[in-house]
Design a protein around this nucleic acid. Structure first.
Lengths: 119, 119
DNA sequence: TTTATTAATCGTAATTATACGATGAATGGA
DNA sequence: TCCATTCATCGTATAATTACGATTAATAAA
């Protein structure tokens, strides 16, 4: 086995081994955690439906205080699932394509792995 | 519109409307929350790989105290993602097919909705 | 019967999450 | 310039999460 292949297998191992240090597992958990509140799923769905919207729009739709909505938006932003752009006095939020793609890839990979190997 | 259709449309609305009371959103968030920790994703992957295993096996693989693993197993069980069967002094855990299917359906539906409508 | 093993639960401590109102910075309009 | 609007952040209270060791109940083995 060449050194290159050895390194490749190590990289592969790192992403397939079931370890708490596995970056795929860590990232999947982080994304799932961000999805782990009804308000945040609702926000993502609103952004998917309306493409872009202001923080105030969301506050109008979801019956939570403005500060609470802002906190949820921060969680989604920190998780890389949305992007916020300041437009004058408003902040325009939209889905982050990269984050959403990652979400889709990681979660469909995981859920497929689970359904296939379901007892 | 007949009464039946009216009722059907109401049921449909209940599952498509973006509300914090929408059962699909609530369930998706609950499942995501259960996935929201690396240890729990690792446990699910172990169960997918080994089909069934005892609590002690998992404790051997994941570097966490037995009580902590037991707590994570409880979270997954409460979320309906795994099943635990007492076998003598051991408890045999396996994936819950119904829960895993629900996970797969809800999360792929959500992630597809998000990727399709990504800016 | 006594002892060992397994795994759930209890008790506890530290951290994180969730919600709200209040405050403050930035911008737009009067 | 002054006021209104928007939204992030602060302060804060409460609840939930995460981790651990200790304990307990149930079963298996000696």
């Amino acid at each position: 086995m060449t050194i290159k292949l050895l390194i490749m297998s190590k990289i592969t191992d790192k992403n397939t081994d079931i370890t708490l240090e596995n970056p795929e597992i860590i990232r999947s958990a982080a994304i799932s955690k961000a999805l782990g509140h009804p308000a945040r799923i609702a926000i993502l769905k609103i952004l998917a439906q309306q493409k872009t919207c202001f923080c105030g729009d969301i506050t109008g739709i979801i019956p939570l205080a403005q500060s609470t909505v802002s906190q949820h938006l921060k969680v989604l932003k920190t998780a890389g699932l949305i992007i916020g752009t300041v437009e004058g006095v408003n902040t325009c939020y939209c889905l982050n394509p990269d984050g959403v793609k990652e979400l889709h890839n990681l979660l469909s990979e995981l859920s497929t792995e689970l359904v296939i190997n379901c007892c």
